[in-house]
């Protein structure tokens, strides 16, 4: 292949890649559900009261959520509380930023967390291990250590069937794989 042909090929590939990028540039995703901090905190506290295992993960209570709706508050620089999920269980992870903009890189997706707007991420727990929850938006000097704790382990209990029964995906829900 001559240098001229290769040059044309490189430029043609560049035009195609630029076109792809322009076509695929993501639109702005769902903003989330307007929620007050007081309402969300009340839901977190109710979940902790109903599902507290008594264990601690650092300073955080470790909670086994009693229903498929899990409420986690993001603040500099933690996700509160730590949770334990049922293997294979289907959950809706509700997230709200308390202070500044954070993000939640949860499993294979990421959502931006803006104070006042609750985001809901559907999550199917793996068979074992843990699910990584990490802030992906720079939020201050403690940002690199802002990760949550989502462990997965089985518990014999009445709520297991309810959680494994699946959940509906409602308004404000970020679907997996969405940019």
């Amino acid at each position: 292949m001559s240098a001229h042909s290769l040059s044309v090929a490189v430029l043609a590939a560049t035009v195609a890649l630029l076109g792809w990028w322009l076509a695929a540039s993501p639109g702005d995703p769902v903003d989330g559900v307007p929620t007050t901090l007081a309402d969300f905190t009340a839901r977190v506290e109710a979940m902790v009261a109903a599902g507290d295992t008594g264990a601690r993960h650092g300073d955080l209570p470790v909670v086994r959520p009693p229903t498929a709706d899990v409420f986690i508050l993001a603040r500099r620089w933690s996700f509160t509380p730590a949770v334990v999920l049922e293997p294979g269980g289907s959950y809706r992870i509700h997230l709200l930023a308390e202070d500044v903009v954070h993000s939640a890189a949860l499993g294979g997706t990421e959502v931006l967390l803006v104070p006042g707007l609750m985001r809901v991420v559907p999550l199917t727990a793996p068979a074992a291990g843990s699910v990584r929850l990490q802030c992906g938006e720079y939020c201050g000097l403690g940002h690199p250590r802002m990760s949550g704790s989502i462990a997965v382990s089985a518990q014999e209990g009445v709520q297991r069937r309810q959680i494994l029964g699946g959940v509906d995906v409602g308004e404000g829900v970020e679907r997996p794989g969405r940019p």
Binding site: L17, L18, S25, P26, D28, P29, E110, V111, E137, P179
Partner: peptide, 20 residues
């Protein structure tokens, strides 16, 4: 195409380098 504070803005630049 995107508002600067949005996640889409961040991801568009990441995609730019991935492709370019």
């Amino acid at each position: 195409r995107t508002d600067v504070p949005r996640l889409a803005h961040r991801q568009a630049f990441t995609a730019l380098l991935w492709l370019g």
